[in-house]
Design a protein around this nucleic acid. Structure first.
Length: 592
RNA sequence: CAGGGUGUAGCUCAGCUUGGUAGAGCGUCUGGUUUGGGACCAGAAGGUCGCAGGUUCAAAUCCUGUCUCCCUGACCA
């Protein structure tokens, strides 16, 4: 499949190095850290304009176009239609969905000359839902799946790593509309098709990736997947079960059964300690003669509802709480409590213990790992004080009846797998390049996208949304495919398939032979870059390694005389091999 | 947002401690010798030292303010 799509005879090009812009540099920019950032800059793919803002030079742009073409082919095949929405959008669109608050500073905002508040689009749920309010009037128009490839704007708190996290980037976003979940026209069907389309896209791009379950939001079920490029330098952590193949991001990953025991007999008396000026659980633990794993951490949360209730989440001190899991355990959405309100309610923030259960009306959820010790250090419910020797059965017997025990923390490497007993989860790093999501009716309800269904009843549309970071895909590809000398581009998204290096192009016939060959390759559907510069061979070879085109052909007076060319894949070690002139086109075609 | 760093030639950097006419390497241009893994010789162009104030006879250098960019973290599609 990938071969057929990588080659398109009607569009193949021959470009000259001397007539395009490929400003390679010998030295890396001092501030670049990630390989993709370093090599894309050195190889003349990108140049910075400002923080998180980049020029895409011809090489990068050609790659991005190739990625876009693959995306278009796969999405069109999946039944989606391309369109284009504006980057500029009135802020009023955000008022109904409250995303101006959700997004906060991430949203680029500006005022036009008339003082109208305007935003640069970070994503387009509002715009397309608003559009559909005027367009979708009958159930007969469903299902519908629309996408665009467009520049997005997000005022990231900290742009970094070149194209991997920037403030202006290229994204493909798609939105589907349905009136039911199941069946041919249902959200689930389209979601599955998009999942398959994404798998095809990233496979064709030559990426080593993993689809992983992601936090699904209010609709429940496994309604969201992230597509992660496997890469040690990635920002995100995913957890994988090597036995069952289960994979999920750190927020979503379930943890297999963990035994726990309420009735551990006490070993120590409860002792109160003065612990002032100790920011961080590590310091406190050290002072109390234990470590973070010997402490209980009590998070004060509130339910998100008309009359919020207090929720205490109790974890082992070295574990990280997970709001979504607490939400699932409690049955209502929760958020970390406002510190002021919590203090006023009587919580000694920073020194809260589980024993607040008997003092206030609240719900308590306990992680199993927080029940497996006879003696805990924890807060004293009093500023600047902690206690040691806490024992659940002696000091808080009511918890056994009143509290819920549930998995409420982020999974870690080594935790039991939720899908294979005896297996342990492994942690891997990745770069998120795609995310598909069952939105449900969040936006249609907020913005009034209602349609008469077959039964003549008004019904909010059910939506899905599907994103791919196009520019990030390019960067993550380079991040995971390079060597010491430069980029190693997969053929499908390389700016050109073949790099013809001329040696002494001024000598008789060398350039002519190079272009004759280039045209022949192009006629066979291969994009060709001819390095026609009158440089010495050294720099030209170095540049060829750097920009990383998959195939290299060397043309010199020597090769012409022998009626051969030299041929080398970017991935080959050592010397090029001699190939008969008559064989080279098929060699190239076979090699990609 | 917190902490740390940074800004001098197209790029990578030195010079700042101790104030006194702006430096190197790479790149670029000219001429010549060269041509299979970042050549050599000779010459040249290129910088209001981030910006604004201040101190001083004199500021890249000292002081104040401000901005930029980067890194770590927090936050977050």
């Amino acid at each position: 499949m990938s071969k057929a799509h990588a080659i398109n005879p009607s569009k193949a090009v021959v470009h000259r190095w001397s007539q395009t812009l490929i400003p390679t540099t010998r030295e890396a920019p001092s501030d670049a850290v990630m390989p993709s950032h370093i090599f894309m800059t050195r190889a003349g793919y990108i140049r910075p304009v400002g923080s998180g803002i980049y020029n895409y030079l011809p090489l990068a742009w050609r790659s991005l176009q190739k990625i876009s073409t693959i995306i278009r082919e796969e999405l069109d095949a999946a039944g989606a239609s391309e369109m284009l929405m504006p980057a500029l959008m009135p802020m009023e669109l955000y008022e109904n969905t409250k995303r101006d608050q959700d997004y906060g500073d991430l949203l680029f905002q500006l005022e036009d000359r008339a003082g109208r508040r305007t935003a640069l689009g970070p994503t387009h749920e509002e715009v397309i839902t608003d559009l559909m309010c005027g367009c979708l009037t009958s159930y007969k128009q469903f299902p519908l799946n629309l996408y665009q490839i467009q520049t997005k704007f997000r005022d990231e708190a900290r742009p970094r790593a070149g194209l991997l996290r920037c403030r202006e980037f290229i994204m493909k976003d798609a939105y589907s509309f349905h009136l039911e979940l199941d069946g041919e026209a249902g959200l689930n069907h389209t979601y599955d098709k998009m999942y398959q389309a994404y798998t095809n896209i990233f496979t064709r791009c030559g990426l080593d990736f993993s689809p992983v379950e992601a936090e699904a939001g209010p609709i429940g079920g496994s309604a969201s997947h992230e597509f992660m490029v496997n890469c040690e330098n990635g920002e995100d952590t995913i957890l994988v079960c090597p036995v069952s193949g289960y994979a999920a991001n750190v927020e979503k990953a379930e943890i297999g059964d963990r035994p726990f025991d309420w009735d551990q007999s006490p070993t120590d008396e409860v002792v109160k300690h003065h612990t002032p000026n100790m920011p961080g659980i590590e310091l406190v633990a050290e002072h109390l003669g234990t470590n973070a794993a010997g402490m209980l951490k009590t998070l004060v949360m509130r339910t998100v509802e008309a009359e919020p209730k207090w929720v205490l989440a109790v974890l082992r001190g070295d574990h990280e709480g997970n709001e979504a899991k607490v939400r699932d355990a409690v049955g209502t959405a929760v958020a970390m409590a406002d510190e002021k309100e919590a203090l006023e309610a009587g919580f000694a923030i920073g020194y809260v213990s589980p024993m607040m259960l008997d003092k206030l009306d609240l719900k308590m959820v306990i992680d199993p790992d927080a029940l497996n010790s006879q003696s805990w250090a924890t807060g004293a419910d009093e500023k600047d004080h902690h206690i040691t020797g806490f024992n659940w059965s002696r000091d808080l017997p009511s918890a056994k009846d009143k509290a819920i025990v549930a998995d409420i923390r982020n999974a870690e490497a080594g935790d039991p797998s939720p899908r294979a007993s005896g297996a342990s989860l492994e942690a891997k790093r990745g770069i998120e390049v795609g995310h598909i999501f069952k939105l449900g009716t969040k936006y249609s309800e907020a913005m009034g996208l209602n349609v008469l269904n077959k039964d003549q009843k008004n019904q909010p549309a059910i939506m899905g949304c599907y994103g791919i970071g196009v520019s990030r895909t390019l960067a993550s590809c380079i991040e995971s495919s390079h060597d010491d000398n430069g980029i190693i581009m997969p053929a499908a998204i390389a700016p050109y398939h073949v790099h013809i290096v001329t040696i002494k192009p001024n000598e008789d016939g060398v350039l002519d032979h190079a272009f004759e060959l280039a045209n022949e390759l192009a006629a066979n559907g291969l994009d060709v870059l001819v390095d026609d510069r009158n440089e010495r061979p050294g720099p030209k070879f170095k540049d060829a390694d750097l920009i990383g085109l998959p195939l290299r052909i060397i043309v010199s007076s020597k090769t012409i005389e022998a009626n051969q060319v030299e041929f080398k894949k970017r991935t080959d070690e050592g010397k090029a091999q001699m190939v008969a002139r008559s064989e080279i086109v098929s060699s190239c075609r076979n090699a990609i």
